[in-house]
Computed example of a mutant assay.
Amino acid sequence: MTEDGRPGYAVTTLESWMAAITHHYTAAGLDSPVRTRVVAETMTGIRKQRTKAGIGPTKAAPLLAHTLAAIVTAIDESAVGWKAQVAARRDTALLVIGFAAGLRRSELVALWVSDIARAGDPGDRFLLVRIRGSKKSPTEMEYVAMARGENPRTCPWCAVLRWLAVLAAFDRAVARATARAHPDPAAAGQHAVERVCARDTAPADVHVCERAWPSFQAVDVALLRPLDADGLPHLKALTRPAVVPDILKRRAAQAGFDAPVVETLKGHSARGGAATMALAAGVSINDVAKHLRHRDIRTTRGYDRSQPWAGNTAADHLGL
């Protein structure tokens, strides 16, 4: 318990630890101590105790579309110089793709360039995101379609194309410099990135959806990457899913959101926001569950912000 009398750990945290214990014991060919009657009864008791105390599960605040728009606008307006522009393109792509595709943090950081493709006739109506092994289907590939956005700042196509332009130029320059035994391939990559940023004068509030798809030396490379001290992308992917909420919080604070609001944003906020916005817009719960790849539709219902108890209820007809 904490000093204010609240539980020190959420039930979901305890369940995650139990799952990890079970995984390691099973991998070692041993029976998991978690799968015992005493543990099951203890967890049931914890849930009952918290329900009686009115302590429900804490959920990440959903990242709504207008909040996302405010954040990416601030990202663009603060991007002075090529280094800041590279970081702005990366962070905007990360936030917009995560929101539009409703991706989990682990799915987002695992994306390769080859996992994003144009699809749908006529006229390439969608960006198709391939997920290679998700929580729902760890041994299968799943696909999520992202349509073009009305707002250029939050359009998935624009965000992807602006970031791919940087990656493609950097990767090609480094590959050519390496093949020619250049003493500093990273410097060649930097010059290429600087040229891209200098030539791309299209403002962020203008669509760039019709641009040609950048050509890569190899497409089986990480899409979202860390940036080094010189502002250049690494060749490897972001490896920690925790980077996603770190970027979201930092960029929200930069956009001027108050600290209490920033602290409510977590790694699940973009995914939760996509579900919340879609349900509020009248999308069927089955379609939202399909988009988020939920195994249990009850999980999807948890994002429904409507108030089913308000309006025409049985209590309205009791003659009181």
Rank of each mutant, 00 (worst) to 15 (best):
residue 199 R to A: 15
residue 200 D to H: 13
residue 200 D to I: 10
residue 201 T to D: 09
residue 202 A to E: 14
residue 202 A to L: 12
residue 203 P to C: 12
residue 206 V to D: 06
residue 208 V to K: 01
residue 210 E to N: 14
residue 210 E to Q: 14
residue 210 E to F: 07
residue 211 R to C: 10
residue 215 S to D: 13
residue 215 S to C: 10
residue 218 A to R: 14
residue 219 V to R: 11
residue 220 D to T: 14
residue 223 L to Q: 04
residue 223 L to R: 01
residue 226 P to M: 05
residue 227 L to A: 03
residue 228 D to Y: 10
residue 228 D to T: 13
residue 228 D to H: 10
residue 228 D to R: 07
residue 229 A to S: 15
residue 229 A to T: 15
residue 234 H to Q: 06
residue 234 H to K: 13
residue 235 L to C: 07
residue 237 A to Q: 11
residue 238 L to T: 08
residue 239 T to L: 12
residue 239 T to P: 01
residue 239 T to S: 15
residue 240 R to N: 15
residue 240 R to S: 15
residue 242 A to I: 06
residue 242 A to P: 01
residue 244 V to E: 00
residue 244 V to A: 02
residue 244 V to K: 00
residue 244 V to C: 03
residue 245 P to A: 08
residue 250 R to L: 06
residue 252 A to I: 01
residue 253 A to R: 11
residue 253 A to T: 09
residue 254 Q to R: 11
residue 255 A to S: 10
residue 256 G to C: 03
residue 256 G to V: 08
residue 258 D to C: 09
residue 260 P to A: 05
residue 261 V to K: 11
residue 261 V to S: 11
residue 263 E to A: 13
residue 264 T to Q: 13
residue 265 L to S: 00
residue 267 G to D: 01
residue 268 H to K: 03
residue 271 R to Q: 09
residue 272 G to H: 02
residue 274 A to F: 10
residue 276 T to V: 08
residue 279 L to S: 12
residue 279 L to G: 06
residue 282 G to Q: 05
residue 283 V to Q: 03
residue 284 S to M: 09
residue 287 D to N: 15
residue 288 V to N: 01
residue 288 V to Q: 00
residue 289 A to D: 04
residue 290 K to W: 12
residue 291 H to D: 08
residue 292 L to T: 04
